[in-house]
Design a protein around this nucleic acid. Structure first.
Lengths: 202, 202
DNA sequence: CATTATTTCTATAAGACTATAGAATTACGC
DNA sequence: GCGTAATTCTATAGTCTTATAGAAATAATG
């Protein structure tokens, strides 16, 4: 009934989170059963409750796992004294690399988190807002430095970057044959210069 | 047991599709029960089966409703002899306006269609592919005309437009206070020119 | 008004799902 | 090897869900 704090337990719990992430990503939170998750992990349905007190807690853990280190990385990017271009490239890289590494969990965070009750969503919401604000800050700083036009709507720009990254992240998760670095390169380029310029005015 | 083909029946069936779209958009396909849909429509659970033979068919109808006229509009845009900029603006406008008009159904199409069995997805997949190919064609034509740089990856570009529109469409559905035309304007501008240029080089 | 067709309702069968309790098994320390 | 703790299993209660069948109600027609 009670959980030890041994590294062994923690390790298996992590496996359980990964298994839940994989199943939630494939079937959605409500479409996935605890039997599915357990069998992905190689145990029986009832045994899963040794690691999660409820299916909902499993979702919460997956979401937290998916977004963890995410804000942290953005903090570092925002604090770095780089050109806007470098910061944007770093942002896209961090975002899409996350999708590649713990792809299912991040996808679950984006698609299923709103099925958590308000209370359990607060922490996630704070992390997400903070992330967006940091990105927005990168834009406003670049405008102040004169690297971007003064008329730019930074809130809109940040949302667009996040949206585009998530869209491509979804494609990356689904189509594993995609070259992530190629996507990073092209997406950064489009965001910076748009489709318009004849040759990239390097 | 058998359905009439009266306009009255068709009208109520449309209401049922809209009700299903609203509930699916809010709770997801698996999270929504037929009781939810029925009560949204103001009838009892069992009565719903007068209009749908199964919950799955309801999802199929919602998805088809969501994407209907969608490809058609893109056909028109692709056939029109306009500048690339005008065509891109028209595409973004059509896409986001769809979200505004029958917002829930299009959202459901994007988020839940993959829960349909392979067979029922074929038609949707064809429509989606056709849509993307038409958009891709607009890009290749613009490259041929010299309006866009020859090095542009048109497949990538089309996916990015669709992804960005869907991302903003989701935000529009969730936040009803957003000014759609402002989003259309800004998104088109970013896609065309990127964040970079100091003033928009009209 | 009476007859028929349409629409909705009630009741229920059959199955799936979450979560719990206690037994069985496996791993660990000595 | 033995005793104890950690982990997994079996079995099940209780709830919810989809879909069906037939009765009841409502609307349409002559």
């Amino acid at each position: 009934m009670q959980h030890p704090d041994s590294p062994k337990y923690q390790q298996q719990k992590l496996s359980a989170i990964r298994a839940a992430a994989a199943v939630f990503a494939r079937k959605g939170y409500h479409g996935a059963s605890t039997t599915d998750i357990a069998s992905e992990l190689g145990i029986k349905q009832g045994s899963l409750y040794y690691y999660f007190s409820s299916k909902e807690e499993a979702l919460e853990q997956v979401c937290l796992f998916g977004i963890r280190d995410y804000v942290q990385r953005m903090e570092e990017i925002a604090a770095s004294e780089q050109s806007f271009e470098a910061q944007l490239m770093a942002t896209v890289t961090a975002h899409l690399s996350s999708y590649r590494e713990k792809n299912e969990a991040l996808k679950v965070h984006n698609d299923e988190r709103l099925y958590l009750p308000e209370i359990k969503r607060i922490k996630l919401k704070q992390m997400g807002s903070h992330y967006r604000e940091l990105l927005e800050g990168i834009f406003t700083a670049a405008v102040d430095r004169g690297e971007l036009r003064a008329s730019l709507d930074c809130h809109f720009a940040a949302q667009t970057v996040i949206g585009a990254c998530n869209a491509w992240g979804d494609l990356i998760v689904r189509d594993h044959s995609l070259d992530v670095f190629e996507v990073i390169q092209k997406l950064t380029d489009v965001l910076l210069f748009g489709f318009r310029p004849q040759p990239a005015q390097a």
